[in-house]
Computed example of a mutant assay.
Amino acid sequence: MSRTPPACRAALSPCTAPLPATERDGALALAVGLGTNRAFETGRPVSVRELVPGVWPR
């Protein structure tokens, strides 16, 4: 019997169908990475809104 908790097993098991992703999803994922790099450079939190203005209405 596996000692891995059920929630972990579900999260680690392969998906049967890929989730659809759009170009916007990819661009936002890239923006998160850019924000992470900027945060390391500046030592302060960086918002994706700051990097990609106009993505989310205020």
Results as ranks from 00 to 15, higher is better:
residue 8 C to I: 14
residue 43 G to V: 03
residue 7 A to N: 09
residue 44 R to F: 06
residue 44 R to V: 12
residue 58 R to Y: 05
residue 32 V to P: 00
residue 39 A to I: 03
residue 32 V to D: 03
residue 29 A to L: 12
residue 58 R to M: 03
residue 8 C to H: 10
residue 49 R to H: 10
residue 46 V to E: 09
residue 17 A to V: 11
residue 9 R to G: 00
residue 54 G to P: 06
residue 56 W to Y: 10
residue 4 T to W: 03
residue 27 A to Y: 04
residue 43 G to E: 06
residue 2 S to R: 03
residue 32 V to Y: 07
residue 29 A to P: 00
residue 1 M to R: 14
residue 57 P to L: 08
residue 9 R to P: 00
residue 25 D to E: 10
residue 49 R to T: 07
residue 25 D to H: 15
residue 23 E to Q: 15
residue 35 G to Y: 04
residue 40 F to S: 08
residue 22 T to L: 14
residue 13 S to D: 07
residue 1 M to N: 08
residue 32 V to E: 11
residue 35 G to Q: 03
residue 1 M to T: 13
residue 22 T to P: 08
residue 58 R to E: 08
residue 29 A to Y: 06
residue 2 S to I: 04
residue 51 L to P: 04
residue 26 G to D: 12
residue 5 P to M: 09
residue 5 P to C: 08
residue 13 S to I: 00
residue 43 G to T: 05
residue 10 A to H: 08
residue 21 A to L: 15
residue 9 R to E: 07
residue 25 D to K: 13
residue 11 A to I: 00
residue 47 S to K: 11
residue 45 P to V: 12
residue 19 L to D: 09
residue 7 A to D: 02
residue 42 T to V: 13
residue 28 L to R: 15
residue 14 P to W: 08
residue 53 P to H: 08
residue 21 A to T: 14
residue 1 M to A: 14
residue 39 A to Y: 05
residue 31 A to V: 10
residue 3 R to Q: 12
residue 49 R to F: 02
residue 9 R to N: 02
residue 50 E to Q: 14
residue 11 A to R: 10
residue 22 T to C: 14
residue 3 R to H: 10
residue 28 L to H: 04
residue 26 G to Q: 14
residue 52 V to A: 13
residue 15 C to Q: 02
residue 17 A to H: 11
residue 20 P to F: 15
residue 43 G to D: 00
residue 40 F to C: 06
residue 29 A to S: 11
residue 22 T to A: 06
residue 34 L to W: 08
residue 8 C to S: 05
residue 41 E to K: 08
residue 33 G to C: 15
